[in-house]
Design a protein around this nucleic acid. Structure first.
Lengths: 347, 347
DNA sequence: GTGAAAGCGCTAACAT
DNA sequence: ATGTTAGCGCTTTCAC
């Protein structure tokens, strides 16, 4: 009653039982060198009888490379990331890798701690799905020469695959503008990383200019607080809506959008009659009739597939190859959280 | 340009640079035996200068135990599981473990393949969050003597922590009965494992008897199909509702419940005016005013905490200790998908 | 207090 | 075709 699992047989036990050498056993289980049919059979039988399972740790130690990928995600609770991680794990497994996932909740310390653990574990590569407050971890990783890919976000210094955010946001803004909204505001959440946020905001500003509409004050919505019915969370929104600050809202992601719809209706502003909301991501639940979230959808399957491909390529090619950036096209999905603004409707 | 990462320094490099032996370095980085302050400093400095990171693989190989936990989940896309995995990872990390997650999509072959990979990787233990079609994998795992805990489900042969399902379902049925529903039907999905399903169904039957109401035909709803607007998916429901087969529905989980609400409203039956729906799990999105899902909520944080505790205990104590079962109390959360049935309302 | 030596389970030359 | 040998990077007796 000392050790967790019963003692597992090693390659040596198999060798002994089948009356051959370690190497021969190794050869048959890896089906590498040629082994006589007779011995092959005997080894296989011994493996069977003993219930032998090769020790991956030992193999990876001697091979000097692991078949483990680290997946660093901000919030697994967000279905967009849940699905992405699920797809990434699928692709990883298909290519012979396992996935160690790390949830950071957008906290820099956690991100650092998780990444440190991944490095000690000698993961073959890391997929990053979201950044926390600062990108210094990225710098360390790059300096470390570890294989790295950023999925659904972008950074010029590393391999990455994401959607064309500028285009995505312009789709949202243009849609709102075409419906007749004159004043549009950008809504984000404290969880979204500073730099990403700024980039998106810039895109948003540009899109507003291009579409010829004014831009309202940017709102930051604490999603948790809204869902927990914390009253303070929506005061800012109330002020804004009642003062005619904006009739159209472009949200940083679908969860924020959904929380925004909730908050708006709670203060008596109907969506889409009074205000319109468009999200970003394309989570499955947004398709529910009761939600009907108009959103800019990301191609999740492609993001995952490309992410794993890029990462494995990088693992092969080493850190010296120039970084590759892939930009996928997002798609506007119009549902029922957007409509012409009230003033226009009354015509 | 051959290998992925640049060659990392080993404990030997540190030893050389600081002019001490391997063992001394090992002692200081693990802060085990006592080392003279002088050498201690020199070692630490060398570690710093070299950017040395201990090789977890090597350590775990010699220690004969890993600090990796396997988490096997049916569908990470379901926010209930997304959140559970997130919580499990947090607790695991707090106790010094990393989490390798495996998504099975409820497919037995995938489950087997993933579990095999986990065993080769010599995970210290496995958390199972959902079963696929058959439980034979469980048998193998038990025979294997691997540390194992089942979370949010139950099996008498292994450590497990879940909610009292019988009680949970009776909460749902009783709530419906108290509202005046005479005929209640159970709704599940093809993704839910046979045995779990049967157990829940039995509980459901019992609850109906106790509450003195009839039970309608059980429905199996393909959630994907409903959300994808596949027409066939809701025919059965239409027949049932129009034939007065049931006015109240107890769903196997919140996703099914939400899909059911969608399907019902699509065939012209308003929720809760015409039919009532109660879910099971308590996903965050159910709290949205537009969804307002009445549901039987599971204590997720406690499930995760207890799951990791049970597993680590098991890792310590070995396979011989008798299995422990923990049953937590679910809680009925009444929102707006339930109301008195139409007939009763017309009084 | 410190170092030398013996492995953990495996793979990969290198002999035969 | 098969066995022998030397490690992969680390921890841990066991002498000194």
């Amino acid at each position: 009653v000392t050790s967790g699992r019963t003692d597992r047989p090693t390659i040596l036990d198999v060798a002994e039982r089948s009356g051959v050498s370690k190497s021969t056993v190794s050869n048959v289980i890896r089906s590498s060198a040629s082994v006589s049919p007779d011995r092959q059979r005997r080894v296989l039988q011994a493996v069977e009888e003993l219930g032998y399972r090769p020790n991956g740790l030992a193999r990876q130690l001697v091979l000097q490379r692991t078949s483990t990928l680290g997946v660093v995600v901000g919030d697994l609770d967000n279905p967009f990331y849940g699905e992405l991680v699920k797809l990434l794990e699928r692709h990883a497994h298909e290519r012979g890798y396992t996935a160690t996932v790390s949830n950071t909740d957008g906290r820099a310390e956690r991100e650092a701690a998780r990444v440190a653990a991944l490095i000690e574990q000698r993961v073959a590569g890391i997929v990053m799905l979201q950044f926390s407050g600062d990108r210094s971890i990225l710098d360390d990783l790059i300096a470390d020469g570890i294989a790295l890919v950023v999925v659904s976000s972008t950074d010029a210094r590393v391999d990455s695959v994401g959607v064309d955010e500028t285009h995505g946001i312009s789709l949202a803004v243009r849609h709102l503008a075409e419906l007749g909204h004159q004043r549009i505001a950008y809504v984000t959440s404290p969880l979204i990383e500073e730099r990403t946020n700024r980039a998106r905001y810039d895109s948003f500003s540009g899109a507003c200019r291009d579409a010829g509409c004014e831009q309202g004050t940017t709102l930051s919505l604490d999603v948790e607080a809204v869902l927990a019915h914390a009253p303070c969370a929506i005061d800012e929104l109330a002020d804004m809506v009642h003062a005619g600050g904006a009739t159209g809202f472009a949200a940083a992601n679908d969860i924020v959008a959904v929380a925004l719809v909730e908050a708006a209706e709670r203060i008596g502003a109907n969506v889409p009659t009074d205000v319109s909301v468009v999200g970003f991501d394309g989570i499955g639940l947004g398709a529910l009739a009761r939600i009907g979230l108009t959103t800019v959808a990301q191609p999740r399957e492609q993001l995952a597939a490309a992410g794993i491909s890029l990462l494995l390529d990088r693992i092969e090619s080493g850190p010296s190859a120039p970084p590759r950036q892939m930009l996928l096209e997002p798609k506007l999905v119009v549902r029922s959280t957007t409509a012409p603004p009230p003033s226009r409707k009354e015509l």
